[in-house]
């Protein structure tokens, strides 16, 4: 029954230093909507909690000169929803983050925490992958960047080095005719965990899909970037044959398990259904005629 140390540094250097010094017994606290639940359930018992919400860079939303966004890893879903521009440019990313938990949870839960929790069912992760987001991480050896899809390593595991902290997400500028969408299947209408989640980002030029990315959640040990589905969409007018092919690619990419939340058969079938619906919403948002 050791005591838990709590630290809320104002700089990333301090946070990384403390995280490194704790040698594996520390946990990062952003919104805490996963960490506190895990602690209550006795799954983790950290010796040190490093609260990153007092670090300015991690709680800010910056629109860059080229029209991209840098979103701090600890920005809560509610704060992101109040940003005047973000949801217009990235409606799919925003809706994926805003699907996490209840209104109360939205005041705390962040996309950074959602990614670092390592759950294959994290709602914001497929949408961030579809958005081609790049993450910035900082550790004892300085900063580095990598694509979102390089972060998940397996259920509850991520590819961050010891004492590295996720700092921010960088979302690229959007060409005209672009939009995104995220849908998940849950047996209820809210307060649930995705049985399958699907994020789609695409660009339409004169009705032709010129760019597309597809992220698929809860169907494999990690969230998947489904390149075959994107390939089926790119170059098409999103006609039935192309969308069916993309849906089939999603179903083919599934490597799910049977568990209390869904069966292999169900998840595989639903992945294709969600792809079709998500493409439809993203295309409408992108201005499909």
């Amino acid at each position: 029954m050791t005591d838990i140390q709590y630290l809320a540094p104002h700089t990333l250097d301090e946070a990384v230093g403390a995280f490194a010094a704790a040698a594996g017994t520390a946990r990062i606290l952003a919104g805490g909507t996963d960490l506190l639940v895990q602690m209550r359930a006795g799954m983790v018992r950290p010796g040190l909690i490093v609260d990153i919400k007092k670090i300015a860079e991690m709680t800010s939303i910056e629109e860059t000169a080229d029209g991209g966004f840098v979103v701090g890893a600890a920005v809560s879903g509610a704060v992101l929803a109040e940003h005047p521009r973000f949801g217009k440019v990235w409606p799919g990313v925003l809706e994926s983050i805003n699907l996490i938990g209840s209104t109360q949870v939205q005041g705390r839960a962040s996309a950074g925490g959602n990614l670092c929790n390592g759950s294959p069912a994290g709602d914001s992760v497929p949408a961030m992958m579809a958005a081609d987001a790049i993450v910035t991480v900082q550790g004892p050896n300085g900063r580095r960047q990598m694509p979102v899809e390089a972060v998940p390593a397996g259920p509850g595991r991520i590819n961050l080095a010891p004492a590295e902290i996720l700092v921010s997400f960088t979302l690229p500028p959007r060409p005209p005719g672009s939009s995104d969408a995220y849908l998940r299947m849950i047996p209820r209408t809210e307060m649930d965990i995705a049985v399958v989640g699907c994020g789609v980002s695409l660009t339409l030029t004169n009705g032709v899909c010129t760019a597309a990315r597809v992220g698929l959640g809860a169907v494999a040990p990690t969230v998947l970037l489904v390149e075959a589905a994107a390939k089926a969409l790119i170059g098409s007018k999103l006609d039935t044959a192309a969308v069916d092919a993309a849906a089939a690619a999603c179903s083919a990419a599934c490597r799910p398990i049977d568990d209390k939340r869904g069966t292999i058969v169900y998840r595989t079938k639903v992945a294709g259904v969600l792809l079709k619906r998500t493409v439809g919403i993203a295309a409408d948002r992108a201005g499909r005629a």
């Binding site: 047996p187 209820r188 209408t189 809210e190 307060m191 649930d192 965990i193 209390k260 939340r261």
Partner: peptide, 23 residues
């Protein structure tokens, strides 16, 4: 939902799905 060891696998409101208001 019971697991293969005869234990309840969903002992909480997350996976024991009572309706929420929006349902």
């Amino acid at each position: 939902i019971y697991n293969k060891d005869g234990k309840v696998d969903n002992p909480g409101f997350l996976d024991y799905r009572m309706p929420v208001c929006s349902d």
